[in-house]
Write a protein that binds this DNA or RNA. Structure first.
Lengths: 334, 334
DNA sequence: ATTAGCACTCCTCTTTTTTTAGTGCTAAAC
DNA sequence: GTTTAGCACTAAAAAAAGAGGAGTGCTAAT
């Protein structure tokens, strides 16, 4: 691809991103000071190379996925944030009061506001968490709270009402045993070890050990369920995009956002900000997902932006670059 | 309205609910053994009374909101659940392991499965909760968890990383003071009393009292934010309804479900199961909301079903009747 | 009170026509 | 050997025209 073709491709991609209209040769004449015929020849060439597509024989060109990809990798320059956007984000990052998880949630809402796309945050799934501590907090004569914490800093609580004749002491004693035996166990194996290692032990010393066992079992089970946290902001933003203009398409995408196991596939493994266009992402072939892993102060996960393939890549990549840098910078402070 | 008109209205409503087609006079001939002309006269009368509507001069009739309302109030009989549905729900209610809140969530998912509408649960907002207890659980040398509990049984936790040179003892001491002074305070007034009553006290005995104050302030603040919980199940079910067949309508309803302050308006105040048709509900004029308050073992809120105005009222009301009775029955047990 | 009959209306579906924005190709011009 | 003007050709989108049908309201007869 020669440099004129590159400039042409850049212009076509950007024009299509802005106008959502297939780009014809005439539109490009003025900008390039060439006749439409010349442009047409170059466009035909770019199509042969796979960077452009036509809807039908006499329509203008739209970028192919390859075209977008080339644009992202070689032609665009991530945009700097403007002052207002920067300020909003700084306010979050410099607020020492905010816990990391809250800061991330605030970020999401700003992302979806300034991009008008949907942002998604995936908390790390439970399998990497190891049990750090279980605590039992008595509330009143027959209510207790079980508090489960992991080494990654995730905490969950669950309230239990004790049956008649059951004493808190029994539970506290069991709690100590559980802590002694299970600390460091990956959270998804805790239930198993609880049954096969702890249960035999407490069966000798605890009177109503079946019930007590049930309480701990429930607490851990609940943890496993809740720690698969997925957050959204601006879920309906994607529907504002003009490409989602038919009922079936909209229903499809809305249902996909409802399907947690599918959304989980957005999780990123590599480092840095990555762009997955159309077929490249596992979520939906009509969208682009831009994502970045974050890990701050024990908590980790993926922050992603989901928008149309016709996405303002320069803006989105610039924004996510900035955010993930800031998140890592603050790693120690918080 | 005479009894023939009532029967006619019932038939029209039910036919429209099932077929989504405006009902013409011919359709009703066979069932009523009357000529189409007679039916037409009666229908004209029902329209004059406001129970029926026409899309245009030569279309069949569809029920007006008033028509639906009359149907719900006077003509329909709530349907009994069938064996399978009953069984599914019983399994939940008889599972003593389940916490109330979990049981309700399970219910929602069953509701949206068997009705194909959307179900919504609103937890009671914090204003009715009073502080019952704050606990501080040390995790390691510089991390603690603050646990806030209310008399309504709501519990939240928040993790803090202590700055250098701050001792857990200081926080525990403050915690005791907070407990002594603030227990019983409505949760939305806690922050205020913390500032004006507790802060002056601890400023004398606690070294870094500003930071300590900040921790408690954050914990309570977080509580206020999180206790406004809203849950959905089958959010996209409503899109399956054939009335949502145009892009604008779909986008509108999807955005509305995103707007928490709007969804909160679904909250029910009265007792029993209520039906709000179209303009009657504050959520959206094109849907019906059927709701019921629940309060079980300290936790309370609203459980609602959102569907098209052309809703299977007999099924939905029957279902929600059953569920809210069961929830109240189990009030003491859990 | 009920019904048959008829004129009329408006929607829906299909077909036809027109307009438009673009292409590819050829041959001339620079 | 690029570049450009010119022209035939396409497919879509928009507008217009027509056919059919479902249903109504009204009148007059049963």
């Amino acid at each position: 691809m020669n440099s004129r073709q590159q400039e042409l491709l850049k212009e076509i991609v950007e024009s299509y991103i802005n106008t959502v209209r297939p780009v014809g040769s005439k539109t490009l004449c003025k900008k390039f000071k060439l006749s439409s015929a010349t442009i047409r020849n170059e466009m035909a060439e770019l199509e042969k190379l796979g960077y452009l597509e036509k809807n039908h024989v006499s329509s203008g060109r739209i970028p192919s996925e390859l075209g977008y990809k080339y644009y992202v990798d070689h032609l665009m320059k991530p945009k700097e944030l403007n002052g207002e956007e920067m300020l909003k984000l700084q306010t979050i990052f410099h607020n020492q009061q905010l816990q990391v998880s809250d800061a991330i949630l605030e970020c999401m809402s700003i992302i979806s506001d300034i991009t008008n796309y949907t942002s998604v945050v995936l908390g790390k799934s439970s399998s990497d968490n190891m049990l750090q501590q279980v605590s039992i907090i008595p509330l009143d004569h027959n209510q207790i709270i079980a508090l489960v914490c992991t080494n990654k800093g995730v905490v969950e609580n669950k309230k239990f009402t004790l049956p008649e004749g059951m004493y808190v002491e029994e539970i506290v004693k069991t709690c100590e045993i559980v802590n002694k035996m299970l600390i460091g166990t990956p959270i998804n194996q805790v239930s198993e070890r609880l049954e096969f290692e702890v249960k035999p032990v407490i069966s000798k010393t605890i009177k109503q050990y079946e019930t007590v066992y049930g309480i701990f079992y429930d607490a851990f089970n609940d943890f496993a369920k809740n720690s698969s946290n997925v957050f959204f902001s601006g879920k309906s933003n994607i529907l504002k995009q003009p490409e989602f203009d038919n009922v079936e398409e909209i229903k499809k995408i809305v249902s996909k956002f409802e399907d947690e196991s599918l959304v989980r596939k957005i999780e990123e493994n590599g480092d840095g900000v990555h762009v997955y266009i159309g077929e490249e992402n596992e979520f939906d072939e009509n969208v682009t997902v831009v994502k970045s892993k974050f890990h701050v102060n024990g908590e980790e996960g993926t922050i992603a932006i989901v928008g149309p393939k016709r996405m303002e890549y320069d803006k989105v990549v610039g924004l996510l670059n900035y955010i993930s840098e800031e998140l890592n910078k603050n790693k120690e402070n918080k």
